Computed example of a mutant assay.
Amino acid sequence: MSFHVDLNCDLGESFGAYKIGEDSKVLDLVTSANIACGYHAGDHNIMAETVAMAKRSGTAVGAHPGFPDLAGFGRRNMHIDPDEVYRLVIYQVGALYGFCQAKKMKMQHVKPHGALFNMASKDAELAQAIAAAVHDVNPDLILFGLSGSELTRAGEKRGLQVAHEVFADRTYQPDGTLTPRTRPNAIIHSAEEAAEHVLHMITHQQIRAVDGTVLDKRVDTICVHGDNPESLLFVKKLRSMLQDNQVIIKAVGN
Rank of each mutant, 00 (worst) to 15 (best):
V224K: 00
Q206L: 06
L232V: 10
I222G: 00
E165N: 09
T179Q: 12
I187P: 02
L199P: 13
I202E: 04
Q205D: 13
Q205C: 08
V166Q: 03
I187Y: 07
K217I: 08
Q173Y: 06
Q173D: 11
I222W: 04
E230H: 05
F167L: 05
V210I: 14
Q173M: 15
H200T: 05
T213N: 12
D169A: 01
R181S: 02
K237F: 01
E192L: 06
H197F: 04
P180V: 11
I187N: 01
S190A: 03
T182E: 15
I207E: 06
E193T: 11
G176E: 11
Q206W: 03
V214S: 14
R218T: 13
D169R: 02
V219W: 07
P229G: 00
Q173P: 04
P184C: 07
T171A: 05
H164E: 15
K236V: 04
H225Y: 10
I222S: 00
D169K: 03
K237R: 11
N185V: 03
T182Y: 11
S231I: 02
E230F: 03
D211E: 09
A194F: 04
T221R: 04
D216E: 15
N228K: 13
H225R: 06
L178V: 10
V210D: 12
L199I: 11
V235P: 01
P174H: 10
T171Y: 07
D216Q: 14
V166Y: 05
R170Q: 04
H204D: 13
L232E: 06
L178A: 10
A194P: 10
A186G: 02
L232S: 02
F167H: 04
P184R: 10
T179L: 10
R218A: 09
L215N: 13
K237V: 09
Y172R: 12
H204V: 05
F234A: 01
K217D: 05
T179N: 15
P229K: 00
A194L: 06
V219G: 02
D169S: 01
L199M: 14
M201V: 04
S190P: 09
H225V: 03
C223Y: 04
M201A: 04
E196H: 08
E193S: 09
D175S: 12
I202T: 07
E230S: 08
I187R: 07
A195M: 01
T182Q: 14
V214L: 12
S190I: 02
I187S: 00
R208K: 15
I187E: 04
T177I: 10
H197I: 00
V214E: 15
D216K: 15
D175P: 13
A191C: 10
A194V: 08
S231W: 05
A194M: 12
H204E: 15
K237L: 00
R218V: 08
H204F: 09
C223D: 05
P174D: 07
I187F: 08
G212H: 06
A186K: 02
F234L: 03
H197D: 03
K237H: 09
Q206V: 01
E165A: 03
Q205R: 11
I202A: 06
T179E: 11
Q206D: 13
I188W: 00
T221Y: 09
I202G: 07
T221S: 15
G212Q: 07
G226R: 05
G176L: 05
T182H: 12
A163E: 01
I207L: 11
Q173N: 15
A163I: 03
